[in-house]
Design a protein around this nucleic acid. Structure first.
Lengths: 234, 234
DNA sequence: TTAAGTGTTATTGTCGACAATTTAGTGTCA
DNA sequence: TGACACTAAATTGTCGACAATAACACTTAA
């Protein structure tokens, strides 16, 4: 499974490939957030025509990485703190419901598969003290499996197809490799347990708390940084 | 406020206008759901070039009214019962959270405005037995105001910019002018009350029940229709 | 010095044509 | 008759050029 787009098919057209390249560049911050996009410039850079580039820009707009205004042009979305918090609130709603649906709709095989994955992660975590690996791939892997397990095309499309690119962008730009690794692991375990018990209500509640905890963690971090900056100013 | 797109600006470019026309045609069923879209055909019909048409198609894809496959073409989404139920589940999650946020973030003026609107609706409802008007415009108006009241750009864009076009499409195609008018009115009242009390938790719960009730109403209706069909077959 | 107005430049929107791919149809062979 | 291969037609993807709009610089007047 390609972790970036588990739902979409492989890129076949050049617009697809350029879309993925630009997407990567935006997420990684190579194209800075908030900057204006020059169609002629980017087209020349990627050696394609403007029509093809615009096709790629449309896909970027679809996953909320750029914003367009008629007769004015495109800008990369800017990563504000408010935007990040709004994103997490939306995520809490969608993934919470996805988790509830997963408890109702996942097959026994899918559940077993997810439990096996968690075992692998737990060993890897113990071996490597696993903060980096676990949070980067493992966390996304877990959340993807839950979302796909909802068997709800709307939820899958909205979360995996749209929100997650933005989330990855924020993670990169704000340098969040999340220090909650071990605690997150426990929370993941409990969520899987609730799904295995087919307890949708509990599963949703746990997932929402799990994401809300991340959000509060971010809020605290931001608050600390502000305090730190204020001190250095004085 | 234009009820179809309270968030977007007015259409200025021809691609925008054609987008709105096709959108209307799809929602109203003039272009049947599930049918294939011929780019040369539609371009000729609207007297525009294929480039412009493709720009419009991209926006239709953005609000999930059509689906595209590389090198194959576009199809109007087909209105399956499963799709409708999935849509309502997603809506329950998003609007529930939007309602919670509205309770936290709406200004006193916005709340007063919404209460005034409900009063107007109640009178109109009594006057006309108001099923048609209330459900069509009034219901959408209420939900829009709550969503906008969340002051959360992500939620607003996802619900108003994307999901609601699909919902209107299903409403038209399945001929749902909802017989829950008076009951829905009571539920709306209670939701506004919870928002006015700044009780986010209750507001979310009530909104979720409100939407879940609609969903169950649909499920029952579908079940009846199936029974009816089975009888007529025998 | 600022404000408004005007002309120039650059960017975006739209167009028609060509290339690449898929689909449909035809014919051949087992 | 059915399945496979091949050809032809239609559709989609890509390209470069032109038209329309917005951004910028400069001039002029208060």
């Amino acid at each position: 499974m390609k972790i970036n787009n588990p739902t979409q098919q492989q890129a076949v057209t050049t617009a697809d490939k350029v879309f993925e390249q630009i997407q990567h560049a935006i997420v990684e911050g190579e194209i800075p957030s908030g900057s204006k996009i020059s169609e002629p410039g980017l087209a020349k850079h990627y050696q394609i025509s403007r029509s093809t580039l615009r096709e790629a820009l449309n896909r970027l707009e679809k996953c909320h990485l750029i914003e367009r205004k008629a007769n004015v042009g495109s800008r990369v979305v800017d990563c504000s703190i408010e935007g990040l918090l709004e994103l997490y609130i939306t995520r809490e709603a969608l993934e919470g419901m996805a988790c509830r649906q997963a408890a109702l709709n996942m097959t026994d095989e899918e559940i077993a598969d997810m439990q096996a994955m968690l075992n692998v992660h737990s060993q890897t975590q113990e071996l490597k003290d696993g903060i980096a690996y676990y949070q980067e791939e493992g966390d996304l892997d877990f959340h993807y499996k839950v979302i796909l397990g909802s068997h709800n095309k709307q939820l899958i499309e909205l979360i995996c197809g749209q929100l997650y690119h933005l989330i990855r962008m924020y993670r990169c730009q704000f340098g969040m490799n999340s220090p909650r690794a071990s605690r997150a692991f426990d929370e993941h375990s409990r969520i899987i347990q609730a799904i295995a018990d087919r307890d949708g209500e509990l599963a949703e509640m746990l997932m929402r708390r799990h994401i809300a905890a991340s959000r509060k963690n971010i809020e605290n971090k931001i608050a600390e940084e502000i305090i730190h900056k204020d001190r250095s100013k004085i």
